[in-house]
């Protein structure tokens, strides 16, 4: 999967943001489901919201869609306050896929889409192509009760795509999808992104999202703990990285001796390779040292900290 060209955070926020969240809070009695969230998402940006279950992602989605009232703060979508009367017109340009949505068992896939198309004011003739787009062309006439979990999720996605929305809110969109379907799903998101569609999606599967979003926010306990590009987050938390160095077994001790005096934070010797851990600022020093060990290094692989590492760094 090719990674997307990241949109720098400051560029996204500089032009008028499509989604603008200011000091948004939502309390349920003593429970602070969302607490002081600030967020700007620019046009055509693919934005990821990451967090454990119960971190406040779904509540934030509902706030951004005006489904529940804010306790404090303000949210604007395409310039309109989500709690205001002008938001109805904006809703026509929004697609939403709720988390764990259960659609109507007694309707067929096509009837389900036609129902939502009428509510959105979208021509019914658009429905078959939306089903085709998510790979349900063969199941249009089948009742939803016969659909698998993945098919239901795809139907929900087709619903969100109705009427060529300019803003998409996708809450855990890939839950229940197999790897192939996840790949297809992100291919559609890439197409949409190229058309300038703004997308916010949430997930708790970090590996899946990290190479695919422009920017992401890490949510924990109702707050945004960190926000930025994947690379910026990695640098911000300054987690160590790993070198995997493949060597001839005879060379291991010599390479080890060459590296010990460097500011490395860990080393593991194996039969034909060496794993070396160091902080980012020592990265070039290690590389230069390895380069001087003429011909000994057979192969080299640098492992950046994964988003999981970053995530646990922020949410712990």
């Amino acid at each position: 999967m090719a990674s997307l060209t990241p949109v720098p955070a400051d560029t996204a926020a500089a032009s008028a943001p499509v989604v603008s969240v200011r000091a948004a809070s939502k309390y349920y009695g003593a429970v602070h489901a969302v607490e002081g969230v600030d967020l700007d998402v620019g046009r055509g940006e693919l934005f990821g919201l990451i967090g454990h279950n119960g971190a406040g992602k779904s509540t934030l989605f509902k706030l951004m869609l005006g489904l529940i009232p804010l306790t404090a703060g303000e949210i604007r979508i395409a310039g309109a306050a989500v709690t205001g009367g002008g938001f109805r017109a904006v809703r026509r340009r929004i697609g939403y896929l709720p988390e764990n949505v259960v659609l109507y068992d007694n309707l067929t896939g096509l009837e389900t889409l036609q129902f939502f198309a009428r509510l959105k004011g979208v021509p019914a003739r658009d429905c078959p192509s939306a089903l085709e787009r998510v790979g349900l062309a063969d199941a249009t006439g089948r009742r939803v009760r016969e659909y698998s979990k993945g098919m239901r999720q795809r139907l929900g996605f087709a619903q969100a795509l109705l009427g060529q929305p300019q803003i998409l809110f996708l809450d855990e969109p890939t839950s229940g999808l197999d790897p192939e379907a996840i790949r297809d799903f992100y291919a559609i998101l890439r197409d949409l992104r190229n058309q300038g569609v703004t997308m916010i999606l949430s997930s708790h599967i970090l590996a899946e999202i990290q190479e695919r979003v422009d920017r992401l926010a890490i949510m924990s306990a109702g707050r945004i703990q960190a926000i930025g590009t994947v690379q910026a987050l990695r640098e911000q938390i300054d987690l160590p990285l790993w070198f995997d160095i493949r060597l001839a077994p005879a060379d291991i001790d010599r390479v080890r001796a060459a590296l010990v005096h460097l500011p490395i934070t860990g080393m593991e010797a194996h039969s034909d390779r060496l794993a070396v851990q160091c902080q980012r600022e020592a990265k070039m020093q290690v590389l230069e040292t390895l380069a001087r060990l003429d011909g000994m290094v057979l192969d080299l692989h640098v492992r950046e900290p994964s988003l999981e590492d970053v995530f646990f760094g922020f949410s712990d």
Binding site: L65, L67, I94, Y96, P98, E99, N100, L103, K120
Partner: peptide, 14 residues
């Protein structure tokens, strides 16, 4: 209960 209310309310209707 089935989770479709949020979806309905996100539609352009009061």
């Amino acid at each position: 209960e089935r989770g479709s209310l949020d979806l309905l309310l996100s539609m352009p209707l009061t």
